[in-house]
Design a protein around this nucleic acid. Structure first.
Lengths: 334, 334
DNA sequence: ATGAAAGCGCTAACAC
DNA sequence: GTGTTAGCGCTTTCAT
């Protein structure tokens, strides 16, 4: 059992009795190579199973094709769909997508970014972790010199970082108006607390919706906390038990699923007895209970804009930019 | 606006007036360094924002921490959950997980593997694409010398490749028995065709289930084709319209969702009028229609076994191994 | 059109 | 305990 040594351009060069430079040129389609030589080299290369070591070119400063993607998780259908679209596009451009799950933990995020710098990632797409108010913010995870796109949430990271955000204020406000028009007087809201920029914005939008309908803001109907499936379910059950609200609007993915689960298992009949408006549009929302109304977030445009950034991320002179894409209220049975 | 040159161990060495080797040793915790020197170096390194270029060590033959993961897609909740678990574990061991989506296309798979070899991935976890009977199988995508784990499906790829599979034959057969016991005489099956090893196995299991109940195999009740959401829905509708079967068993993820969707929108009431047994256990199956019965695939053990392989994949002397994990019939309302 | 030399950042193997 | 050298695989630069 003999271990075959790695096949490099020098191996091929020796094998063919020529200089390794000629091999290099032949393989990278440099014009200055005899046509026959080129053929010869290419054939021998595939025969020998030659693989061009990316590390070598990376070390010379030619960069990599590696893109980093930092997400809280990837089971959430929104993140999964975004990752899916982005990864598909990366396939087209021969980018390598390294996915790190931060679990919304700042320290995990830092480590992941560190590793991505070590492999010289071309750019990093990141859903920033929530700001921890207790944290020593003097250490902004040294990431100067990295191309960064912030997704969904925004936080000061680099001097100039691009952000790709969802503009959901109007859709949330629309949701409230819609419920009001259907006769609901007590509308509850479950959302993220103010540690998340998105949490603050969505709550404001909810209040603005109430205002538009000349409804008063009742603190008892507004539930905020760090977002999670369980938190959504807990609050939904509390709202049901308090028996005041006749409708719930959700301001977060996990929250929406948690609340929906609680409602489905509560015995209440969605639509007729109790109104529900979810967040993001998982495919099954359209199948069940005659269709779950929801605030739909545009995944494809987000992914496309992200890719566009990645393709242009060679020149690092991108000025700070913020791109927003509109969410949309989708009214269905509930 | 000046561009800071890259900080390397030599930068630090010059800065401190010492040899770059001492810096290297200090940073990699080599014992032969004065304690004070080590401190000095470490401090200066963080001050300067030093990043250890992974490409350099990789080129020396020290390997990488890169793991490749090839999946058909990542929106399917089974794949998403597997990726999520594996990625989480990778975070713990500082592995870098590169995800490639093959979309079940052989050529995409080949390109992805090629790229992973270029970055010298430590190992590759792959859900093999279906075998294309038309394809020239003389080109088994040269991947000798790569550590490969095959997931879910099995195909001859390397001389010795480990496979981590789901043993679902018993669960499928159980599903048939269960339906039979509940009085169903005409049980339909929708599954992948024989291009997929898993497709063949599952169909056999279905037939074995019928046999156990002394029911005859009726070709009209068995629908197979390349698996997809639409295919599942189409066949489900056909089965309903033919009006023979009183129950459906699904043998595939996408298929299950497609068929379920078709059923939910058909007006049939699941459970009472028509029995349905899905495949894989997406979280929402438990919420709706009083609970969708399903064949549950054990994600966590699969991921854990995979990680175990990855951790041991330094020594390449792993003999060919096949690990199987049992799927389980979960009986709920439908 | 082809070849030789140098160097990217790092560490094992030697000096000292 | 510290420094010097060499070399991983590749391409840019400068000969020829």
């Amino acid at each position: 059992l003999e271990v075959a040594a790695r096949v490099t351009i020098k191996t091929i060069a020796k094998d063919l009795g020529i200089s390794h430079m000629t091999v290099s040129r032949a393989l990278s389609n440099h014009p200055n190579v005899q046509k026959e030589t080129r053929e010869l080299v290419r054939n021998r290369a595939t025969e020998l199973g030659y693989v061009k070591i990316a590390a070598a070119t990376a070390m010379r400063g030619d960069g990599t094709k590696i893109i980093g993607l930092l997400l809280p998780n990837i089971v959430n259908e929104f993140y999964a769909r975004f990752a899916n679209e982005l990864a598909s596009m990366c396939e087209t451009f021969a980018f390598q997508l390294i996915i790190h799950l931060t679990n919304d933990d700042a320290s995990t995020e830092r480590k992941a970014i560190q590793q991505l710098r070590e492999v010289q990632a071309k750019a990093v797409v990141v859903v920033p972790t929530p700001e921890d108010p207790d944290e020593d913010k003097a250490e902004p995870s040294h990431l100067e010199g990295l191309q960064v796109v912030q997704l969904i949430r925004q936080r000061t990271m680099t001097s100039n970082d691009t952000a790709i955000l969802v503009e959901d204020a109007k859709a949330i406000s629309d949701a409230v108006e819609h419920l009001h028009n259907k006769g609901h007087q007590k509308i509850a809201y479950i959302g993220a607390n103010s540690n998340l920029s998105s949490g603050r914005i969505r709550l404001e939008a909810f209040k603005k919706g109430l205002e538009k309908c000349s409804m008063s803001v009742e603190r008892a109907l507004i539930k905020t906390a760090p977002p999670s499936f369980d938190m959504g379910g807990d609050f939904a059950r509390i709202i049901l038990s308090e028996n005041q609200a006749t409708a719930i609007v959700c301001g977060g993915f996990e929250i929406s699923n948690g609340a929906l689960h609680a409602l489905l298992t509560s015995g209440k009949r969605l639509g007729s007895e109790f109104a529900f408006i979810g967040y993001v549009d998982p495919s099954f929302y359209n199948w069940i209970e005659g269709g779950i109304s929801t605030i739909k977030v545009p995944v494809t445009p987000l992914a496309e804009r992200t890719l566009e950034f990645l393709r242009n991320s060679s020149g690092d002179g991108n000025a700070e930019q913020v791109h927003k894409f509109d969410a949309e209220l989708v009214v269905r049975a509930t």
